[in-house]
Lab assay of single mutants.
Amino acid sequence: DAPDEFRDPLMDTLMTDPVRLPSGTIMDRSIILRHLLNSPTDPFNRQTLTESMLEPVPELKEQIQAWMR
């Protein structure tokens, strides 16, 4: 099983494109984008959230890719 820090906190699946929300939570980009289609909010604190506020986490993405090899 993947380490917890590699798993999306909402869907508990392996992240492939991790992004940091303004709240500091790291999620998979595809999952948070799907959530934003229904509700333009951070799913953990209900603060306003837009796609432009998502910050890529390239170092975590590299760690996940290395773990998958």
Rank of each mutant, 00 (worst) to 15 (best):
P3W: 05
L10G: 02
K61H: 07
E5M: 13
N38D: 12
H35W: 15
P3M: 05
D42F: 04
H35Q: 06
S30V: 12
D4K: 15
I31F: 05
L36G: 00
D17W: 06
T48D: 12
S23G: 09
E5N: 13
V19I: 06
M15L: 04
P3Y: 05
Q47L: 10
M53Q: 10
E5S: 11
N45E: 06
D17K: 00
L14M: 09
R20Y: 04
P18F: 03
M53K: 05
M53R: 04
F44V: 05
I64M: 03
N38A: 12
Q63W: 09
R7G: 03
Q65R: 12
R69K: 15
D12Q: 14
T13F: 07
T50A: 09
P9E: 04
R46P: 06
I64D: 04
D42V: 00
Q63A: 15
P22F: 01
R34F: 10
S30E: 13
R69G: 13
L14P: 06
L10C: 13
L33K: 09
S30R: 11
A2K: 05
I31Y: 06
L54E: 01
S30L: 12
Q63R: 15
Q63K: 15
L36C: 05
E62H: 10
R20F: 04
R46N: 15
F6N: 01
I64Y: 04
V57M: 14
P56Q: 07
R7S: 04
S39N: 11
T16H: 11
L60P: 00
E55H: 09
F44H: 04
L21T: 04
P40W: 08
M15W: 02
Q47Y: 08
T16S: 12
L36E: 00
I32P: 00
L37P: 00
R7F: 13
F6I: 03
D42G: 03
A2I: 15
E55T: 13
P58R: 09
P43I: 03
L33M: 14
L54K: 00
S30M: 12
L36P: 00
I64A: 00
P43W: 05
V57G: 03
P43F: 04
M53D: 12
E5L: 12
L21W: 03
L54H: 01
M27A: 05
E59Y: 11
I32N: 00
S52R: 10
I64P: 00
A2D: 05
M53L: 08
E5Q: 13
I31V: 15
L21F: 02
R7P: 03
L60E: 01
D4N: 14
H35N: 04
T13C: 15
V19T: 04
F6D: 02
E51R: 08
P18H: 02
I26M: 03
H35D: 01
D17A: 15
G24M: 05
P9A: 12
N45S: 14
I31Q: 06
P9R: 07
P58N: 10
E5P: 09
E51K: 10
L21H: 00
I31S: 13
P40L: 12
I64G: 00
T13S: 10
R7M: 11
A66Q: 14
D4I: 15
R29S: 07
M11R: 08
L60S: 00
T41C: 12
T13M: 08
T48S: 13
V19Y: 05
D17M: 04
L36Q: 00
E5D: 10
L36K: 00
F44A: 03
P3G: 04
R29C: 07
W67T: 05
R20P: 00
G24L: 04
P40Y: 09
M11Q: 09
L60M: 08
V57Y: 08
L54S: 00
M11W: 11
R20H: 04
V57A: 08
L54C: 05
S39V: 08
D28Q: 07
R29E: 03
T50Y: 12
M11Y: 11
N45K: 05
L36T: 00
P43S: 02
R29T: 03
R69M: 13
M11V: 09
P56K: 06
N45G: 09
E5F: 12
Q65P: 07
L60N: 00
D28S: 04
P18W: 05
N45V: 06
R69Q: 15
P9Y: 05
S23K: 03
Q47F: 08
L54T: 01
P56T: 08
L14I: 14
P56E: 12
D12N: 15
P22D: 01
L14K: 02
S30T: 13
P9L: 06
S52H: 12
V19G: 01
T16L: 14
R29M: 07
T25R: 15
K61Q: 11
R29H: 06
R69V: 13
T16C: 15
P22I: 04
R7D: 02
P22T: 02
H35F: 11
L33W: 05
I26K: 01
S23W: 05
L49V: 07
S52D: 15
D8S: 02
E55R: 11
G24E: 02
R29G: 02
P56C: 08
T41I: 09
L54P: 00
T16P: 04
L10H: 06
R7H: 07
W67N: 08
D17T: 03
H35I: 10
T13R: 07
A2V: 15
A66C: 12
E62A: 15
G24K: 05
T25C: 12
P56M: 08
L54D: 00
P22G: 01
M15D: 00
E5A: 13
T50G: 06
A66W: 09
M11H: 10
P43H: 03
P56I: 07
T50V: 10
D42S: 03
S30Y: 11
P22R: 03
D28M: 05
P40M: 10
P18E: 01
R34T: 11
T50S: 11
P9S: 07
M11I: 07
L10Y: 10
T41S: 09
W67Q: 07
D17V: 04
M27S: 02
R69L: 13
L54A: 01
P9H: 06
M15A: 00
T48P: 15
L60C: 07
L36A: 00
N45Y: 06
I31T: 12
N45C: 07
M53A: 07
T25M: 15
R46K: 14
I64R: 00
T48L: 15
P18M: 02
T25Q: 11
T48N: 12
P18G: 03
M68R: 08
S39Q: 09
M27C: 08
T13L: 08
L54F: 07
P40N: 13
D4A: 15
S39W: 09
D12S: 12
L60R: 01
I32S: 00
D1R: 14
P58I: 09
L37S: 12
M11S: 14
S52G: 12
D17C: 08
P40A: 12
P58C: 08
V57Q: 09
I32Q: 01
R69Y: 11
R29D: 00
L37V: 12
L21G: 01
P3N: 05
L36S: 00
R7K: 13
I31L: 06
M53T: 04
L14E: 02
Q65S: 09
Q47N: 11
R46Y: 14
F6H: 03
G24C: 06
M53S: 06
Q65K: 11
E51G: 08
V57I: 09
E5T: 10
E59T: 11
P43L: 03
Q65I: 13
F6V: 02
M15K: 02
R34A: 14
D12E: 09
